[in-house]
Design a protein around this nucleic acid. Sequence first.
DNA 1: TGTTGTACTACCCATAAGGGTAGTTTTAAT
DNA 2: ATTAAAACTACCCTTATGGGTAGTACAACA
Lengths: 207, 207
Amino acid sequence: MRKKIIIVEDNQDVQEAFKLLIETKTNDYSVINTYDNCEDALSNLKTDLPEIVLMDIDLPGMNGIEGTRQIRQTLPKTDILIISVHENSQYVFDALCAGATGYITKNSNHTQLLKALDEVSAGGAPMSTHIAKLVVKSFRRESESPLTGRETDVLNLLAEGKSYMDIADQISVSKDTVKFHIKNIYLKLQVSNKIEAVTKAKSEGFI
Amino acid sequence: MRKKIIIVEDNQDVQEAFKLLIETKTNDYSVINTYDNCEDALSNLKTDLPEIVLMDIDLPGMNGIEGTRQIRQTLPKTDILIISVHENSQYVFDALCAGATGYITKNSNHTQLLKALDEVSAGGAPMSTHIAKLVVKSFRRESESPLTGRETDVLNLLAEGKSYMDIADQISVSKDTVKFHIKNIYLKLQVSNKIEAVTKAKSEGFI
DNA sequence: TGTTGTACTACCCATAAGGGTAGTTTTAAT
DNA sequence: ATTAAAACTACCCTTATGGGTAGTACAACA
């Protein structure tokens, strides 16, 4: 049984090219419908019941990221493979957060596209070289912290929801010392309470 | 010019197998040294100057994740490819956060390993099928929230570092009402302070 | 019609948190 | 040896927080 694919892509040529490619070069997939916007794709979703969606991002009306979100709400088990020109990190992250299974760039060649489909079928998450790098990079935290080692320790405990007293016990100093460190942390991060400090430190990668 | 590789792996057989594989099956790489622990690898790092490090995680002494962190501090441009038996998400994320370029599992076959090396060389981030899925999944947030609309509003403001009073003004209710909502939030999330509530809600995707 | 869930208000109380100020001791660098 | 940064302690004071208890109002639902 061939896996059912729908394509959401507003460029007719690209749409045709994908369809032709999939229909002629493999026996594992079948393009059952193509759409040039998310709205149409969504309204036929329950009759199409695709197993894989090839989704563009730049679309008239609803964009592909919002489309991805909505398709996943209706068909949570359907894999959505984004095929986009954007290599911009925000697009990539938004798409993945919206529930995309993989993200490959439009300049991928035919072999890579078909390989991506196979990877999706195998339960994988195909990503173009550059995209995978972006994603992995997002796990890294560099940027040197303005906080001293002690302050970082204190902030980490604060981030766990510990009280001043808890922290004092844990690092074996007095409560006033903890307070002292926290005051300095607030100064350095330009904040005035625990939540802001933790949020800022996390976003800057200090903790 | 062949790319210089070092292998950090405590199992002699595996170490030998990798080395043999790389030396016989490709002309693009050369294993210039093998180590069975991070400490030795680190002390020779500046003379080895490897372009790629194949790194195990379970090692005597310093583990591969800490090793990755330290190697990246000395040689930020060196790619570190983790080869591990662990498919546990924490290990994967820790490794990527520590600066690993890719993460493949030990049950990968020879072809996959060599392909991973090529991907690293091409600036990519090779990951085993299952690993890539884990990583992509980490971008998703699902699970419907147990919080009511009002509680979610309050929690969002709390997450911005606002005080009870600030929140009360913002949503035009009394301070006691805010307090009331927060008490219910704590109950539902099973926490007892702002930081824990915000942290938990964020991790569960409620806010 | 009664029940349930959500939103809301109010008051009490103890402790935590935040801000100011004033110092001492360690440690590492010049 | 001197200096500066980091780590630490202590006390003052005000406000914020969290926990308990006790209600009212309103809408949806059975």
